[in-house]
Design a protein around this nucleic acid. Structure first.
Length: 270
DNA sequence: AGCTTCGCCTGCTTGC
DNA sequence: TGCAAGCAGGCGAAGC
């Protein structure tokens, strides 16, 4: 599922391919893919891509002169670039839900088997306050996180998943972060506050390493050229319930916490 | 306001 | 082998 490292990998690839290309035509199969308040994708026709970057788990495509398109990939969304003269990627037509036809024979395709993803298209001036998410884990200071944790009774894992607190961390990287920080995911956030420095530095190092490895491909995630990420081979706890902890050889536990499958080492994480 | 639960979706896995 | 139930989860809405 695309979290910060996967989206970062995607936008870096798109930023090399899309800027300068003009939208000729668009298509979208389900209106339900629009996030509330979105303009129709058609509004982007004749606008030119200026830049592509990431805000939290969202890929953001900026258009000249005034447009912006936010793509939230949900769990199974994929952005794929191709030349129209090339063959379509095999076997995936059924889940092709969005399409930006660009000049120069290029196009941007959106695949999403589960259709949990969302598009949000707006004028730039309307966009600024619409994305209700907190700061990026790479730019916050320790004092910000300490204040965010203070007095909170919910679990530290639930808090790390809350995009209004920090944007970009999802289930995989929450579990990996807490393993490297040595903090039990069930710890109330307020109590975990004394480990805030370790949690923040672990989040940053886990996310950095994941970006360097092109993200984690469990099932659906692919880079825009179709290649897989490699960070899944470096997961310490995520997806390893019942297996041996790589550090202490205790058995990795899997529980449900905050409604999510949660993996941790009961010996390394207190 | 803070916290939890639910519904949206489909494909894969599990159990009978 | 085939079918049904269970499970996965980001996010927004609804409920407590």
């Amino acid at each position: 599922m695309p979290e910060l490292p996967e989206v970062e990998t995607i936008v870096r690839a798109l930023a090399k391919q899309l800027p300068g290309r003009r939208v000729l035509r668009t298509s979208l199969t389900h209106r339900t893919l629009y996030r509330r308040g979105s303009l129709a994708m058609r509004w982007l026709v004749q606008k030119t891509v200026e830049d592509v970057n990431r805000v939290g788990k969202n890929a953001v495509i900026w258009f000249d002169p005034v447009g912006v398109m936010v793509v939230n990939l949900g769990m199974t969304g994929r952005l794929v670039t191709r030349r129209r003269s090339d063959r379509m990627p095999p076997g995936s037509r059924k889940h092709l839900h969005g399409r930006l036809y660009l000049d120069g024979g290029f196009e941007l395709l959106y695949y999403d088997p589960r259709r949990f993803g969302h598009f949000y298209i707006a004028k730039r001036c309307d966009f600024a306050n619409d994305l209700n998410i907190g700061p990026d884990p790479f730019v916050v200071g320790l004092s910000y996180l300490q204040e965010a944790l203070e007095g909170r009774t919910t679990s530290i894992k639930a808090l790390l998943l809350d995009q209004r607190v920090l944007s970009g961390i999802g289930n995989i990287y929450a579990d990996e972060t807490l393993f490297h920080a040595g903090v039990d995911p069930r710890t109330p956030a307020g109590i975990a506050g004394k480990h805030a420095a370790k949690i923040l530095s672990s989040a940053q190092s886990v996310l950095t390493s994941a970006i360097e490895h092109g993200g984690s491909t469990l099932r659906d995630y692919r880079r825009p050229d179709g290649s897989r990420g490699n960070f899944q081979f470096l997961h310490a706890v995520y997806g390893r319930g019942g297996e041996m902890c790589l550090r202490c050889k205790a058995r990795v536990r899997k529980i449900v916490l905050a409604g999510r499958g949660t993996h941790f080492c009961p010996r390394c994480q207190k």
